[in-house]
Structure formats: C-alpha cells, structure tokens
Computed example of a mutant assay.
Amino acid sequence: MISNVPLAKRINTIFALLVVFLLVLATNRIDQHHFETAQKSVNEVFEDRVLVQGYIFSISQALQEKYKKLQDHSVSDTNTNSDIKELLEQFEETKLTKTEAKLLDGFKINFKSLGALERQNSEDADVKKKAENTLNRLQEYLSDLSEIQITESRSLTKSAQKSLDVSEFMANLEIFFLIVIGIVLQIVVFYRSKKIAKAQA
C-alpha cells in the first residue's frame, strides 16, 4: 500500500510530521523553561526571603533582650553580640537587593556604635540614652528590611504564578495540537483507504 503512494506525497507527509514534531518539541521546551523559572522563584522565596525573615525576627528578639538589660544597667552583652553577628553573616550570604544591602550596611554601622557604647559606663545617663536611641534605630532598620522581604516575596510569587500559567497554557496547547494531528491523520488514512478501495473495485 505504501509503495503505491507517490514519492512526492511521501516526502510531503514526512515533512508535515517533522514540522508537527518540531512544533511539539518547541512548545515542550518553552513549557520546561517556564516550569524551571517557577521552581527557581519558589526556591528564592524560601532561601532569600523566608529564611531572612527568620534572621530578622531573631535579631529583633536579641535587640529587645539588650534593651531590657540596658534598663537593668547591664549594657555589656558579648554572647548576644556574637549571635547577632552570626545572623548578619547568614543574612549577607543571601541574594540582596540594592536597598537591602544599603540598609544592612546602615544596620552594621549602628550595631558597631552600640558595641562601643556597651563598653562604656552603663551607669552614665548619657551613654544609656545614646544606647537606647541606637537600639531604636536598629529596630527601624529591621522593620524596613522586613518590609522588603514581604514585597520581594510577593513579586517572586507573582513571577512563579505567571510562569505556571504560561506552562499550563503551553501544555493545553500541546494537547490541542495532538488532538488536531490525530483527527487529521484519521481523515487522511480513511480518505486514502477509501480511495484505494475504490480504485481496486
């Protein structure tokens, strides 16, 4: 039966199937790209935003403890300082925006100033006042950094959702193409079989 089909028709059929194959392959690659983009965004939300929010919360808690000790005239707090420095190092290892990097630098400068005040006389009212003001500024830096985590998380989530939507659309498009191809092949096979049967009658 295949030998009865002219060479030109065979070439056209092969070419058509090749085009369809390449089209499905291309949509599959696009689909995979958007899926990887969505996965990357989800990973960034966890590694660079959720974890960072945890660092910010822990640092804020440590500063509150410092404030309480300050009220008890016990300014020096070496252990808490070491914990905060470790958290800041972990924070710096994440993917920072320009605004985050700037705020983090400001926080570190003020934190260093707090350390210098802690080494002074805790009974001195002026030292205590400066330490309180520095602690308040540090909390403000943390508040601004926390707002960035919310904004960036929202942006990454939207990006991931957009990629997933495109991925779903491409998957539906692939199914549509496969259905159309199936219908066309059924029509071609049925028409050709009918034509051959008529010729042999």
Rank of each mutant, 00 (worst) to 15 (best):
K66H: 06
K68R: 04
K68V: 13
K69C: 14
D72C: 04
S74I: 12
S74H: 12
S76W: 04
D77T: 02
T78L: 01
T78N: 02
N79T: 15
T80G: 06
T80H: 15
S82I: 14
L87T: 00
E89R: 00
Q90D: 07
T94S: 14
T94P: 01
K95V: 05
K95W: 02
A101S: 06
A101T: 05
L103W: 09
L104I: 03
L104A: 07
D105M: 06
D105E: 15
G106E: 00
N110V: 03
N110W: 01
F111E: 00
K112Q: 11
K112C: 02
L114R: 12
L117A: 13
E118C: 15
E118N: 15
E123V: 07
E123M: 11
E123G: 03
D124I: 14
A125H: 10
A125S: 05
K129G: 10
K129Q: 09
K130S: 10
K130P: 13
E132F: 13
E132H: 12
E132Q: 12
N133A: 15
N133Y: 11
N136L: 09
R137G: 03
Y141I: 02
D144W: 15
D144C: 02
S146A: 13
E147C: 06
E147L: 07
E152K: 14
E152S: 05
S153K: 15
R154W: 11
S155D: 15
T157N: 14
S159D: 14
S159H: 15
S159G: 09
A160G: 01
A160W: 12
K162P: 00
L164K: 14
L164Y: 03
D165V: 03
V166N: 07
S167H: 08
S167P: 00
F169M: 08
